[in-house]
Design a protein around this nucleic acid. Structure first.
Length: 556
RNA sequence: GCGGAUAUGGUGAAGUGGUUAUCACCUGAGGUUUCCAACCUCAUGUCGUGGGUUCGAUUCCCGCUAUCCGCACCA
């Protein structure tokens, strides 16, 4: 079992920097907090984890990949709620200068302080004078809004529109909903995913790759009909999982049981938790350091109905790396309301519904001239009247009373067949922080052992995501061994999905050690015999075992 | 954002108000070596950044940036 410690963490980050996996960005200019580079080894690692994620979710069979801009106009994020929700309202204690979040100060006074506006917060604070958590005094300054999104301007000068760098990729899936809906021939359920950069202007980035200002996200928006009882196959996951449920606390059970008992409130959320677990284990997360935690109702993001985080334990403790949120109809409704565009799916009833329409409406030709500006309101009011209403009838509309005469109205009585209805699909969203996952799989894969009395480090990465698949090593760089090794190396590099590294410097043992340190699963060694019999040594990283293989029978 | 500490080759460390800043590992070249960080020779590469004090600053002072630790915050 890995023991996480700050000393091990220092050695691990040192190795990652030295070997070009992850490094602080722009370091020659002094660096920038919360920004990291993936180096010559990390670049491919990131790409492979990313691609593995895409492949994994596309294997659901009804999921497409899209790619949307990171630069996003203001109204999009206003509609989504980010402009409001991503602002923290801060106020400073006049005595000690400590900045506190205004909503936290009045948490005890107001049950839902987070939802309050700046003015409401200000009023409550001056009424109640909450004490400063740091010095105990109760004198507060102005409340300032601090937005966690990066501002930008789309277009130059005064004609530029305000925009933001996106704080999540999800909004692109919602704003493209109709196109995706058409792609799937207007049949639910379906999903759209994208991977890409997201940006949050963190007040204080900490803990290396854990909190970044620019980060790799991978999100799936899966659209479902809330009235269909989806049946998922939970027999895929027989193993018990650690769950920290909102009410029950820490429990250990299978995902299927948790869904059945209603602890996981929607089966698709549970199913995606399983799918998420498969992905995490495939890329090298240690299941002993994985758990799912349900958000308490009061910590749920503004859009969510139920939310489970996959948390991974590593050198920084338990860290949320995936959020699986049931967002309900929140997002599509929000964009619908902001734009007036229909973002809905059509649900055909199993049998057409016969709707009896029995009541009154206005006769436009008479009622229009009679009521003028009020005609519209009169019409709606009349249509609400029961069929037995007698006219003349006095309606009160706003302040005024209006007399409706028989000539103003028409009787309506008919039956209509309704074949279906438009509804706003619900969304289940698995959202992954790719950088956090990469950090943890490195953290879990990194092991320090002793080999012949020396410290030896090894990265036990799964072959699926190893940044280098194989290194080719001439035993000595002479007698043609180097030429043969180069030929093999180039041929391997030309193969689909294979990346080989040629390494000829240092003793063979040193080169094996170098390969192990960055988790290369296989080494091919060209020796004197190779020159005559076309065979090479294939060495496994994990077992150290060597087998003799013909060059044209190499498993790559 | 606040408080404290820190910043020396790629990595980890030592050191100094005085002119060629030290060591180990790493890296590169050559030699040696018939498969797990061996050895020999040689070589490359450093005082975060801007300003101040000073005849002279890597060293002292100040600002900035970054890192670490606490507070706060957090998907």
């Amino acid at each position: 079992m890995v023991e996480f410690s700050s000393e091990r963490l220092a050695r691990l980050t040192g190795m990652l920097k030295r070997r070009g996996v992850i490094l602080p960005a722009f370091e020659i200019h002094g660096g920038a907090a919360g920004l990291y580079d993936f180096g010559p080894v990390g670049g491919r690692l990131r790409n492979r984890v990313n691609q593995t994620w895409i492949n994994h979710w596309q294997s659901l069979g009804n999921v497409v990949e899209i790619s949307c801009p990171t630069v996003t106009p203001y109204p999009v994020l206003e509609a989504s709620g980010h402009v409001g929700e991503f602002s923290d309202f801060l106020t400073e204690c006049k005595k000690c200068g400590e900045a506190s979040r205004a909503d936290h100060l009045i948490e005890a006074i107001h049950p839902n302080a987070e939802s309050l506006s700046k003015d409401e917060l200000g009023a409550l604070i001056s009424e109640n004078n909450p004490p400063c958590p740091s010095c105990g005094e109760s004198e507060w300054g102005q409340i300032e809004a601090q937005n966690l999104m990066f501002n930008t301007k789309i277009g130059a000068g005064s004609s530029g529109r305000q925009g933001f760098l996106r704080p999540e990729t999800a909004q692109g899936m919602f704003t493209s909903f109709t196109s995706i809906y058409r792609h799937f021939r207007e049949r639910l359920p379906f999903g759209a995913l994208q991977t890409g950069k997201g940006y949050r202007n963190e007040i204080s980035p900490r803990q290396g790759m854990i909190r970044l200002r620019e980060f790799n996200m991978a999100e799936l928006e899966y659209f479902i009909d809330p009235e269909v009882n989806t049946v998922h196959d939970f027999s895929l996951w027989n193993q018990e999982v650690t769950l920290i449920a909102d009410k029950e606390g820490e429990i250990v059970m299978t995902l299927g049981d948790a869904v059945e008992k209603g602890i996981i409130r929607h089966p698709t959320v549970g199913y995606f938790m399983g799918w998420t677990m498969d992905f995490l284990l495939n890329v090298g997360i240690n299941p002993a350091h994985l758990r799912f935690r349900q958000h308490e109702s009061n910590e749920m993001a503004h859009y969510a109905q139920d939310c489970w985080d996959a948390e991974i334990r590593g050198s920084y403790g338990w860290v949320e790396c995936v959020g699986i949120a049931h967002r309900g109809c929140y997002d599509l409704t929000a964009h619908e309301e902001a734009t007036g565009q229909r973002l809905r799916a059509w649900r055909t009833f199993s049998e057409p519904k016969v709707v009896e329409i029995n009541g009154w409406t206005t006769d436009g030709a008479k009622a229009g001239p009679a009521f003028r500006a009020l005609a519209g309101q009169v019409k709606s009011a009349v249509e609400e009247l029961p069929p037995e209403t007698k006219f003349p009838f006095t309606l009160s509309i706003g302040e005024s009373a209006v007399e409706i005469l028989p000539e103003h109205v028409k009787r309506v009585q008919r039956s209509e067949n309704v074949n279906g209805e438009w509804f706003v699909p619900h969304v289940v969203e698995p959202a992954f922080g790719i950088d956090r996952i990469i950090w943890h799989l490195l953290d879990h894969s990194y092991s320090e052992v002793e080999k012949s009395g020396e410290d030896y480090t090894l990265l036990g990465l799964p072959e699926l995501i190893a940044p280098v698949d194989v290194t080719v090593l001439p035993l000595y760089e002479k007698d043609g061994m180097d030429e043969l090794a180069l030929i093999i190396h180039r041929e391997l590099c030309g193969k689909k999905n294979v990346f080989s590294v040629y390494d000829a410097s240092g003793s063979i043992g040193r080169r094996y050690a170098r390969a192990d340190e960055i988790g290369v699963p296989w080494c091919i060694t060209v020796d004197h015999d190779s020159l005559s019999d076309n065979s090479v040594t294939l060495r496994s990283r994990d077992t150290g075992e060597q087998t003799r293989v013909l060059i044209n029978a190499l498993p790559f």
